[in-house]
Design a protein around this nucleic acid. Sequence first.
RNA 1: GGGGAAAUGGCGGAAUUGGCAGACGCGCAUGACUUAGGAUCAUGUCUCUUACGAGGUGAGAGUUCGAGUCUCUCUUUCCCCACCA
Length: 946
Amino acid sequence: MTDDKRDKVKYQPSAIEAKWQQKWETDGVYRAKVDWNKPKHYAVTMLPYPSGDLHMGHWFAMPPSDTRARYMRMKGYNVLFPMGFDAFGLPAENAAISRGIHPATWTYANMERMRVQLRTMGAMFDWERETVSCEPAYYRWTQWFFKKFYQAGLAFHGEALVNWSPTLQTVLANEQVIDGKDERTGQPVIQKMMTQWFFKYTRYADELLDFRSLDWPEPVRIMQTNWIGRSEGARVTFTTESGEAFEIFTTRPDTLWGATFMVVAPEHPLVKKVTTPAQQSAVDAYIVVAASATEIERQSDDREKTGVFTGGYAINPVNNERVPIWIADYVLITYGTGAIMAVPAHDGRDHSFALKYGITIREVIRPTDGETAPVSETPYAGAGVMVNSDHFDGTPSNGEKGRKNPAISAVIDWLVEKSVGKEAINYRLRDWLISRQRYWGSPIPMVYSADGSVKPVADDVLPVELPLDVQITGVGNPLSNHPSFIDATDENGNPVRRETDTMDTFMCSSWYFYRYLSPHLTTKPFDPEEAAYWLPVDTYTGGAEHSTMHLLYARWFAKSMRDLGMFDETIAIMKQHGRDSDVLMKGEPFLQLRNQGQMLGEERHGDQIIAIGEYDSDTKLIAHTVGVIPKEGDQKMATGEQIAARTGAVVLGEIMKRTENILTVQDQAGRVWTVEVPETAQVTIPGIPAPNTVNQLKHHLEIQRMSKSKGNVVNPDDLVKQYGADTVRAYILFGFDWAKGGPWNSQNIQGVVRWLNDVWELVTTPPDNETGDPSAERAAERSVHQTIKGVADRLEDFNFNKAVSELMALKNELRVHIREGKLSRAAWHESMKAMLLMMAPFTPHIAEELWERMGQPFSIHQQAYPVYDAAKAADDVTTLVVMKNGKPIDRIEVPATISEDDAKALALASPAAQRVLNGSAPKRIIFIGTRGETGVLVEPKVNIVM
RNA sequence: GGGGAAAUGGCGGAAUUGGCAGACGCGCAUGACUUAGGAUCAUGUCUCUUACGAGGUGAGAGUUCGAGUCUCUCUUUCCCCACCA
């Protein structure tokens, strides 16, 4: 290394990153302004909850989204990429309870810290549009939406089960309840009915099933479809012996004649009316037990299906048969009508219930083909013909649901004629329960008059402000204990009592991307002038865990807003500008959706294992005994080593991987062993009762979610300090499949450290030569243009890791040419410029710094993405792969313009082909190859079939 | 229980439409340079085989000239299930 180079300025992220972040901010480089002369791109990444510190999960979500947004900007779009905080929620109250800090103090302090941290990402957030959901200026409009929905009949009062802690006199979140007990106090939690506010979610159920205008991942569409859970069937009215009518929903009205008992949810109002004195105590006891289980537990098969006979009977309207009414917790009051007819012959759950309690099983659908076990043994849910069903006997039931099944169709018509039932569609989707009995949320802007009637507060007094002078103790609801909040007067001066429920925070996050458009507007939730230009969101990115709830709520909101005319003004302005407004009429907030995966904690070192057996090869052991040695078990480990020394046929080390019964074990010397554990081997795992199996060893090598309690949290601030934001960004983009996530690895980051150092070195060290080697310069130009296309294609598809790998490969190749002195200064200049432009979305700071050092005008982030030239990217030669039955046997360099016939001839003449053919004639010769844009053959292959 | 996804070298991952499996990195090995190296540079690095070759994408079957990719069965792991956000 020459002295000249040693004196050069090294790449020091800390010296450049803060400088450029400040410059970008002062120059307003990322301010997004409406400009009808430019195409727009509205990119949103799900806004964070201000939990305290920015964690790797935020870094994993945001910089990639930023990279994509920056790329779109360089492609010529006017890009809006805002940021905000979803600032209401439970953790703030938990902090208040455990640390005595007011939720507002805690939340605002967290946001202050996170803003600073967010800025270190070097993202193009337009901070002038920052939106914070817990500010009165924001939740004023959240309340306004509630009021509009209420006035339109979309909001209503209803009953719902909640987790109620009698000790704390408060409602608990599901996550606060563990094994039926409050996680904080360990006191029992029961399921209690409460009057709550709902939105009519199911009104849009069918429209929400339509994804035709959306570019969304298939799994999300499937999950939402299943979540909505549309099922076709019938509602049938049964009556009790005393004449009480009640409805059931069934998808199988064709099996009505096989209903040998009824099951109602323990919470069903009918229970009180039909329970006989003899059964009263058993029913009461069962209801108490059922109240302690959550819905997920109740639907779980881990629990045995239980139930109690009420003593009451219903009359089956189709045959006037007397059927017993049971209660069982597998029937949920929140689904359907909370009551079912049980047909044990043709439903699995009903079948096991009937067997357990000795209830009659009657076949009413008989399979027409094949041998089938009798229904007394196995329920039958397939196609067949109706039997034991009066005049319907012989009607074919084809196994389909709804009208597509002739048996169901015929029975429904008959039920209607008899006025005992009707065709019905049931949704698994329930109405949206938006009430929360919590403090730290937006108050619901409703008041109760003395006569018990309820009405919204007047628009001009919105927002109903959340009082700050409250004591958060964890007992009771602070708002219910706050007289000056509760007692109010209406616009006529009459005394009223305020609603003390606050809103589900999903309400806040259902419309924040409209508020970004005009966060300071005081007259409307959003400015139609801005909305007409920016809406809808073009690209929405975030975690897949929001697939069903948040995303469905936001879609519901958009459809409701559309139908309430809230986009009318916006649409009028769009039309003035000649923009297609149909996109808003679809009521879809996010046109394109992409999910990132989850960042996991660094792989934990697993426990040591000792495997004793016989060597099968130098690196493989067949074990007859396998034991786990806990980390703290040093003495035992010493014993293990002694055994190792004595017998030799021992492997002692850490499990790296397990596939079936094959363990990969790394010993302390770093050698990797394969340990096969036959079924006969004895496995000992401390803490797990014997006999143990090799499958249970999985717990000893698990990769874990990052969490403070597990002590595997990687702090992004430390990484930024150590490596710089660009390096952290680059590693996140390069080291993972973004859609999948994965475990953090602190070693792998070295790869991108070297990449950026190399780029720095290349750009800051111009070659001296005025002329270069033409073929090398052509090769460099070709690589640059292939990379321009490669990176762009990858970014379109959110394949960040492959995009970075192509940039690395380009750097590698250019470096070789430059080191060999084969690029002229001009060629170097051109290729470096293109490389920096391509890098700018990924590593914005170093790209800007080097751009400046090359004497280019500020800012690189206001330049266009390099233009791809197919002719310059074209290859002169390509590799022809010769295959035998699909397996490559030879490779031949050929001109890229080679014809199919020439390729076949060359392949057959190749030495490898001659050898495998050995004089015989091939069965077939298949040519595989596509012509690229320039007519050049891409990956030509010849497959010789023998 | 219901729903969704995933499984590729020692590790992260790549393979765009069914067409050269392992790109790009990490790590490791050997060498060079160095007072030094956790810097840098060079070379190598799926497995088996002395070689010729053969095999190989969680397991098993199938479709195909050709399967990591499509179909079926199975195993394992992760995520979501309505008051966490």
